[in-house]
Design a protein around this nucleic acid. Sequence first.
DNA 1: TCCAAAACAGGATGATCATCCTGTTTATAA
DNA 2: TTATAAACAGGATGATCATCCTGTTTTGGA
Lengths: 206, 206
Amino acid sequence: MSAEIAAQPALRARKRVNDPEGMRRKVLDVAEESFQARGYHASSLGDLMAAAGVSGGALHHHFPTKKALALAVIDERVAAAVEETWIVPVQAAASAREGVRAVFEAVAAQLEQQGFVRGCPLNNLAHELSLADPDFRAALAGIFSAWRQAIADKISADQRAGREQGTDPQRFAALAVATYSGAMSMAKTAQDATVLRDCLAALGEA
Amino acid sequence: MSAEIAAQPALRARKRVNDPEGMRRKVLDVAEESFQARGYHASSLGDLMAAAGVSGGALHHHFPTKKALALAVIDERVAAAVEETWIVPVQAAASAREGVRAVFEAVAAQLEQQGFVRGCPLNNLAHELSLADPDFRAALAGIFSAWRQAIADKISADQRAGREQGTDPQRFAALAVATYSGAMSMAKTAQDATVLRDCLAALGEA
DNA sequence: TCCAAAACAGGATGATCATCCTGTTTATAA
DNA sequence: TTATAAACAGGATGATCATCCTGTTTTGGA
C-alpha cells in the first residue's frame, strides 16, 4: 500500500507510531507534580528522570536546563490549571460572586475529600521563584493578572446587566484572588481546609 | 579589684567581654534575611557563613543542622515579626477593623517607600517548608494560629463593648489574614504593592 | 533507497552542598 | 592555679546535583 494516498504534508499530521510527544509530556507531568509537592529546588532532575522513566539525554533534549523545564511547567500547566479551576467556572457562572463562591466551595470539598492540602500551584511556585529569576517572575505575574482580570471582567458583565453597581471590578477581583491564595496558604500549613470555608463565609457576611 | 565582691552565681550574670551571644545572633540575622530573600533551599550554609563572618565550626556549634537553624529562625524571628507587625498593633488599635486597616496601610506605605516587595516572612517559609517536614509545618502553623487568634480576640473585645455584633470572630480573623497573605503573594510576584490597597479598599466596601 | 536532522541513551564532569572531625582558644567552677 | 566544658577555627568528606558530551536509534523528506 503506497503512502501517497492520504498524504497531506501541509497539514503536518505529525504521525507517530507510539506516543506523540510522549516523552515531553511525561516529563512535564512528573515535574508539575513534583514542583507542586516538593517545590522547585527540592526536586532534583535525577528524581524527575527516575519518576518519568526517561534518560538524561532525553530530558536534556526537550528541556536544556532546569529553568526551561520550570518555565514550561508554568506556561503550559500552571496557567492551564488556573484557567480550568478558576477562569472557566467564573465565566460560566450566573454572576461573579456566585462563581467565586462555587470555586471556593468546590476546592474546599475536594480538599476535604482527598484529606490533604498541597496548596495552590501558582502560589506555591510564585513564592519560591518570583524573586529568584525575572523570567519566572514575569511568567507567574502574568497568570495572576489574567486570573484577576477574568473575575473583574465578570463583575463588569454583571454591571452591564444592572447588578453590582457599587462594586469596583479590580478591587473585587484582587480581594477574591488574595483571599483564596491566602486561605490556601493557611490550609496547606495547617493541613486543614476549614479556613477556606471560614473565608468564604466571611466574604459573604462582610 | 577582686572579683568576688559582686559575685552572684545564682543569677548567672553571663558576663562576656565582647558581644554576648554575638555569633549566634549574627547567624540568625543573616539566615533570617537570606531565607526571606532567597528561600531556605536556595540559601547555602556556605553563603550564610560568609555573610555572617563565622566559621563552619561556629555555625555547627550553635546550629547542628540546617534544619535546626531554620527552626530557630522560625521560632525566634518569624514569630517575633508577626507579633511586632500584626499582633501588637491590632491589640493596641481602637478596634479590630481599625487595627487591620492600619497594618495594611502601614505595610503598603513601607513597601511603596522601599520600592520592592520581598513578601511576608511567614508566608514565604510556610510555602517552601510546610510539606517538607512535620516540625517545620507545626512551627509555622502555630504562628498562623496565634496571628488569627489575636485578631479574633480583638473582635470579641469589640463585641463586649457593644460593637461588631454581627461578626464571627474566627471568620473575620481568617479573612483578614488570608487577604493579607494573598495580597502579599501577589504584590511580591508583581513587585507592586498596589494590590494591597485594592484589597484593603475592597474589604471596606464589601 | 538515502540522507540529514531530530530523538533518544547513558555515562562523565565539575561544582556545590551539608555535615563532620580534629585541634585550639576561651570561659567557668572548684 | 587547675580542671572541665563550652566556644570557636578550618579543613576534610562523601553525597548530590545540573549540565554536558559522545554515541546510537528513529524519523521524515527527497
